[in-house]
Simulated assay, not measured.
Amino acid sequence: MSSFKRFDASGRSYRHIGAVLGVLLGFGAPLGAILFRPILAGEMSYEWIRQDIIRYVDFYVYMAFSTPLVFGLFGAYLGYLNDEIQCQKTSLENINTLLKDQSMTDDATGLYNHRHLMEVIEKELMRAKRYSRFLSGMMVDVDDFKSINDYYGHLIGDSVLREMAAILKNDVRKVDLVGRYGGDEFVVLLPETSGELARNVANRIQKDVRQYRFKTLRDYISVSVSIGVVHFSDVKAFDKLLFVEKLDEAMYKAKSMGKDRIHSE
């Protein structure tokens, strides 16, 4: 009897039995616990059953409506965070690309700057050595550039350099590389190019520069260049410094011939 009282007083075992009966009869465990617990416990208060059913229905209605809303809001917030992260990632990628371009590019001409040009020369020499390929190069110097700066000013001097860079880029192939070595000197790399073809490129550059009229604040001026061309059939004995030194020597030989000249080796 005392055991029955403990069983009856808690009501929990009746609820568990009711849940099992609900599953067996197909009502489901929650509804079975509500319906059968008072019957098993001898509590046939219909008001109690009604209130319990109401609480059950209210709970599941609340869950049915609130859960999608909560998860919907949470999903929207996650979507917002993802968009923000993607925007930040894109911004960082753009900044990194800009910084990389700035570290490689000469401000005045938009060509490779001296530091990156030397890196490119080193890479091309390594590639030519590895695959036993020949390589040609040239150094282009703007004749009397100091006089242009002194007479017209540095803004016009920078403008001349920009237009000269555009001519050089236009007169070479896409695989060729053009950089500003420093001051009024430019270096052109011609991978896998024979000496004859390199000389033809130099002639084309010389001709286009002669025909071009460089704009100043008052009028247009003509400019000439001295070009040193070197063909390397075997680059094994050269590093980047010796390579540039050979180009420089060829360019000065052209300039010593009276300017507006091409010297090739």
Rank of each mutant, 00 (worst) to 15 (best):
E245P: 00
F7T: 00
V178Q: 03
F7H: 13
H116Q: 14
K255Y: 01
M139G: 10
F4Y: 15
K255W: 07
N82Q: 10
C87Q: 14
Q102N: 01
V160W: 01
A237Y: 05
R50I: 10
I34S: 06
T193S: 04
V225C: 07
E124V: 02
R199S: 11
F59P: 04
K174S: 12
G79M: 10
H114M: 13
D150E: 10
R173Y: 02
Y220E: 15
N149E: 09
H116D: 02
N203G: 09
E196Q: 13
L197S: 11
G183Y: 01
L177T: 15
G72H: 04
L135H: 00
E47F: 11
G258F: 08
L99S: 07
K5G: 00
K255D: 03
S264F: 09
Q102E: 12
F71H: 05
I39E: 04
R12P: 02
K236S: 15
V209L: 08
H263Y: 15
W48A: 11
L125V: 10
T90Y: 09
I85C: 01
Q206A: 12
D52I: 00
L25K: 04
L111M: 09
Y131T: 02
Q88K: 14
R12M: 14
K259C: 10
F186Y: 02
V230P: 04
F71N: 12
V120H: 00
R213S: 13
R199E: 10
Y252M: 05
R37N: 03
R210M: 04
D248G: 09
G157I: 03
Q211P: 00
H116I: 03
G72Y: 06
M138I: 01
C87F: 12
V20C: 04
L189P: 00
L24Q: 08
G182I: 03
D8G: 01
L35Y: 14
L155C: 07
F71S: 08
F243L: 14
M1Q: 06
D101G: 00
R130V: 09
Q211E: 12
F36V: 05
L111G: 02
A41V: 00
D106S: 09
T67L: 14
S45H: 12
E196M: 12
T97A: 11
D260Y: 11
L73M: 12
I167Q: 08
T216F: 03
V23T: 14
G32V: 05
V61F: 08
E124W: 01
P191C: 04
P30C: 06
R127C: 04
G157E: 02
Q206P: 00
M126R: 08
N200F: 07
Y152G: 02
G153Q: 08
M126K: 13
V160A: 10
M63I: 11
D107S: 15
Y151L: 11
L31T: 10
I54K: 15
G18M: 11
A76S: 09
L217H: 13
V187H: 02
P191K: 10
H16C: 08
E122F: 09
S3D: 08
G72P: 05
V57Y: 09
R199Q: 13
V223F: 03
L25D: 04
E163R: 13
L81D: 06
N96Y: 12
Y77F: 09
G179K: 02
A108V: 15
Y131F: 14
I227M: 12
D234I: 07
M118C: 08
